[in-house]
Amino acid sequence: MDSPTAAEFPPVESYQRQVDDIASKTDVLEKRVNEVTRFFDGKKHGSGGRKAGGSSRYATNGARDCKGTPDLTRQLGGIIRQITSHEWADPFLQPVDVVGLQLDDYHKIITKPMDFSTIQNKMEGKDGTKYNNVREIYSDVRLVFDNAMTYNDENHDVHIMAKLLLEKFEDKWLQLLPKVENEERKKEEPNDVPTTNNTTPEATVGKLAKDTDDELNELYNQLDELRRMVVQRCRKMTTDEKRKLGAGLCHLSPEDLSKALELVAQDNPSFQTSAEEVELDMDAQSETTLWRLKYFVREALERQANLAASGKAEESAKRKRDDIYNALAKTASKRVKK
């Protein structure tokens, strides 16, 4: 198969933005995982976890109802006002000034711009547009911050501000989510079937866990595709690099070595990883396989080194504690003899 030309690849900066975007989404998903974990840990200890249910303390002025449930729309509007009142919200209140800021590549990277003034207009039904439900509003609020984190480097002020505000918004949304799901369920049930006013915490957290799992799987797919594209850009590995790679494989733990051989088998279905002795011909492997192995071996060896260093540090600390205890014991013994 012919190697792709440089023109067929996006610039390196594009890869960096994709990585930053995935990292930011991972941070949000990690918070959700922690939420689910805390809930079920609470159930194990009999506390029932954090009480589910949205808060009704938010202000209700400032946003007319969308086509969804008025109460939910007002509550979400209150959450949005809290977020937009934050001192870091200014860059997200109006559409990005692409011309004034000379962001020539903005629309190439951001295919669906979004800002809070656009969200507000749509919530109020201006320009003939209107949200059908609060989930659509939620998606657009996320889009505001996702766009900012995608376009700006993770060390950029705007990226940092967007990440913090998104985390605050997600926390508020989790409080409102049980009511949202309860209203959705009531709409789906037949009119002659009695409905309950409150959903169970278990059902809400279960739905959150499933949605989080689906999003994590999507992120894994994005990472695999991104890894494949990056590997294809790699140059041809030299003979010396292949030799060092082979030496690195020999220093892997049995578990990591098995994973490394599985990487080889992915591109070589006939490769037998279960044999007692495995012979790996580096020259027979594709460049993609070689570079994937190189990245994997490097990370595995670094991980092993960190574990070893941690073990040595603990052993050193233990020896110091023992020395201190022995010294104290000797001092106490001398005092007794006196």
Rank of each mutant, 00 (worst) to 15 (best):
R32C: 12
Y131C: 02
P95E: 01
K25Q: 15
G46R: 08
G100C: 07
N34L: 12
F39C: 00
S24I: 00
P11R: 06
V99F: 15
D115K: 05
N61E: 14
D115Y: 06
G48V: 01
K44C: 10
K108A: 13
S139E: 09
G125I: 00
T5N: 08
F39S: 01
T129M: 11
G77Q: 00
V96M: 14
K51G: 07
G42V: 03
G77P: 00
H86K: 14
K43H: 01
A89K: 11
V98F: 12
G78F: 04
I137V: 15
Y58C: 05
K43I: 09
F116P: 01
P4H: 07
V141T: 07
I80N: 00
E87N: 15
S117R: 12
A6N: 06
D20I: 02
G78H: 06
P10M: 08
L76P: 02
K112D: 13
L76K: 05
F92K: 08
C66V: 07
E87F: 13
V12P: 00
L101R: 12
P91L: 13
K25S: 10
G54M: 08
C66D: 09
V98N: 14
S139Y: 07
F39H: 12
Q120E: 06
K108R: 15
D97N: 13
V12S: 04
G125K: 01
Q18V: 02
L101V: 05
A23Y: 07
I80P: 01
I83V: 15
F40Q: 04
Q82H: 14
I83M: 07
P10F: 10
T26R: 10
G48E: 04
K43L: 04
D104A: 15
A89P: 04
V33M: 11
N133V: 03
V141E: 02
H107G: 09
I22P: 01
E30V: 03
G54L: 13
R64N: 11
P113C: 11
V12D: 04
W88V: 02
P4E: 08
F9K: 00
G42R: 06
T26A: 13
V36E: 00
N61M: 05
I109S: 10
N121F: 01
V36C: 09
D127T: 02
T37C: 02
V99T: 14
A89Y: 07
F116R: 02
Q120S: 08
S85A: 15
R81K: 15
V28F: 03
G62E: 04
I79E: 03
S24K: 04
I79A: 03
R32V: 04
G100H: 06
S14F: 06
T26G: 08
G78D: 03
G53F: 06
K51F: 05
I83K: 04
T26N: 05
V36N: 00
A23P: 00
P95N: 07
Y138T: 01
S85N: 12
N133R: 06
